[in-house]
């Protein structure tokens, strides 16, 4: 079966390593329903980062088809991929990846700049998103004035700013302590309850279990359910 929202069929990714060709993804099939909270669980070297790059349209597969929000992601040039990243995907990274010279508002505004939103609208939406993640009184702060958890919430606000089809989180709690990680996860739950689609990539089973569905990846092959010990 396939759907228009998110569908991957036979995704293969190969890299040329000198004379050898290494196959990192060996035919991935994956469907995600709108409003789903999915975890992709896998150890390092399992190909989950590569899969994330393809889901995030940072990279294109060697073979296979990928349909996102009714659009076939294949043979697109850099500019078109940038458009899709701008409109369809909200990235959340392990190391937050905030720009240190910008304050919280400006960081959240960044994807809106590339989406071509006017300055006034940018500020309005950035404030709204920061309020949404509970940083009402931290808006003018710079990343180095914020705790790890606060920084990750700024990054989540940034991912939400363009109102993307899909939130794509790569080890979102990897750089946080247990308690803060739990807070971030509860924010994810709230977002899920609001109807957002979330794809979370992690190697941590405990974190993965927060999702409504877990798939495992091992040696470039995907399987439903936990297959990870």
């Amino acid at each position: 079966m396939s759907n228009d929202f998110f569908s991957m069929r036979g995704i293969v990714k190969q890299y040329q390593m000198g004379d050898e060709v290494s196959t990192v993804l060996k035919g991935i099939d994956l469907d995600i329903e709108e409003g789903e909270f999915l975890s992709i669980l896998g150890p390092s070297g399992s190909g989950k980062s590569t899969l994330m790059n393809i889901i995030g349209c940072l990279d294109t597969p060697t073979a296979g088809t990928y349909t996102l929000h009714g659009r076939l992601i294949r043979d697109l040039d850099q500019k078109q991929l940038a458009r899709i990243r701008s409109r369809e995907i909200g990235f959340i990274f392990q190391q937050f990846q905030l720009l240190p010279r910008l304050n919280a508002i400006k960081n959240v505004e960044l994807p809106l700049v590339y989406a071509g939103v006017s300055q006034r609208e940018r500020t309005r939406r950035a404030r709204e998103m920061l309020m949404r993640v509970g940083l009402k009184d931290r808006m003018e702060h710079f990343p180095n004035q914020l705790s790890g958890g606060q920084q990750q919430r700024v990054a989540i606000a940034r991912a939400l700013a363009t109102n993307p089809t899909l939130l794509l989180a790569d080890e979102p709690t990897g750089a946080l302590d247990q308690a803060t990680g739990e807070q971030v996860m509860s924010l994810f739950h709230e977002l899920h309850d609001e109807g957002r689609t979330i794809v979370m990539i992690t190697h941590d089973l405990k974190i993965a279990k927060h999702a409504s569905r877990v798939v495992s990846i091992l040696d470039g092959e995907l399987s439903e359910g936990v297959r990870y010990d």
Binding site: Q78, K79, A82, R83, S86, Q97, L99, Y114, A115
Partner: peptide, 16 residues
Amino acid sequence: TTEIGLRKALGAEPSQ
């Protein structure tokens, strides 16, 4: 490099 990668992930076109 990281900043450039991030900007690209956030939707920056190469020309931008």
